[in-house]
């Protein structure tokens, strides 16, 4: 049984302390910070990104990267808009978008797992390709006037003031947490990320595993794209442009090593909370634009550098449940 102090000495413990500090500062500087509507908005404004960050956590622990998620979100949102405009029932359009997401993700996975190309290259190509498709479908004109229930789902509270997307995030987090920390699939994700060759020798079908991960990431990105369309009630070719960088930032800040094998969803969740609270706090103090970006950037530099300094000896990053040590 670990003591409280030992627990706080982990990277997650460090993030938790940082989060508490940020929340304290925010609530003392802004009277609106702790209101229910602001807390809901805080999540709502970035809800699609943080949902995809959950999938990205799996991908990066697996020692891969998926740069195409932002474009896939855009493609899904635009495909929905286009099909809706062509007169297709929205239920069917949603289903097709999710299928597009899974197929797009599977295409990434196929090139990476079966053909053996680096994920950086493959998903950079599909980042451009999926965005291109989105722009071809919708061009520069916006599409809006979606069905009322669709807009309401994205904009109104479902459970009291809490909108559907926030509930989806919580549910998805719980499911994925169980998968990553409590199942064989989760353990394999860590093992392959630590050393793929070793995993191959151990008889793990690593290609199949990666195919599943990328398919899942595509599916979740498409789902998040639909949530975005519902939240803003309109789509355009540039929907979710550049979101992949924010998503990867959050995951890395959460202590997931870019080299794979290390990290946890709890870390990602804490990083999500830190980034969102920091952004919101700055926005309430009217700090926007370049300064806001700069502060978040500094935070990332710190999170990448800190484990390499002496601090790294103090703050252990979590590895897979059945593993002794990460490779760092």
């Amino acid at each position: 049984m670990k003591t409280v102090f030992a627990r706080l000495q982990s990277w997650e413990g460090f993030l938790l302390c940082a989060l508490i500090l940020i929340i304290l500062v925010n609530s003392s500087l802004s009277p609106q910070f702790m209101t229910v509507s602001n807390q809901v908005n805080l999540f709502q404004l970035s809800i699609e990104k943080i949902i995809v960050a959950l999938a990205m956590t799996f991908i990066i622990i697996n020692a891969e990267i998926d740069l195409s998620v932002g474009s896939m979100m855009g493609l899904s949102a635009c495909a929905f808009g286009w099909m809706f405009q062509q007169g297709m029932p929205s239920g069917a359009a949603i289903l097709i978008c999710l299928i597009i997401g899974a197929m797009g993700g599977a295409l990434n996975g196929w090139f990476i797992a079966k053909v053996g190309l680096p994920s950086l290259v493959v998903t950079l190509a599909t980042l451009i390709g999926y965005r291109g498709l989105a722009r071809v479908l919708v061009e520069d004109r916006g599409i809006n006037d979606f069905p009322e229930w669709f807009d309401a789902l994205g904009q109104k509270g479902l459970l009291g003031p809490i909108p559907f997307a926030n509930i989806a995030f919580v549910v998805l987090f719980i499911i994925l947490y169980i998968v990553l920390q409590r199942t064989g699939f989760g353990r394999k994700t860590y093992v392959i990320g630590t050393n793929r060759e070793m995993a191959d020798f151990a008889g793990i079908d690593t290609a199949r595993h990666k195919l599943i991960l990328f398919t899942g990431a595509g599916l979740i990105a498409a789902f998040a794209g639909l949530l975005y369309a519902a939240r803003v009630g309109a789509v355009r070719g540039d929907v979710a442009l550049g979101f992949e960088l924010d998503i990867i930032t959050i995951v890395l800040l959460g202590g997931v090593s870019i080299f794979g094998g290390t990290g946890s969803l709890v870390g990602t969740l804490l990083a999500v909370m830190i980034v969102l609270n920091l952004r919101n706090g700055m926005a309430l103090l009217n700090i926007t634009g370049h300064i806001q970006t700069g502060v978040i950037g500094l935070l990332l530099i710190g999170s990448v550098v800190a484990p390499r300094l002496n601090l790294g000896k103090l703050l252990r990053r979590q590895t897979g449940p059945n593993m002794t040590k990460g490779k760092t």
Binding site: Q32, N41, D238, G242, N286, T293
Partner: peptide, 24 residues
């Protein structure tokens, strides 16, 4: 106040500032 987003974050940034303005 004269506040705005960065160019690469224009859409999301404008939505964020509009939302925050309502909160404030």
């Amino acid at each position: 106040l004269f506040i705005g987003p960065t160019p690469e974050n224009s859409t999301a940034g404008q939505i964020e500032i509009m939302t925050t303005a309502a909160t404030q």
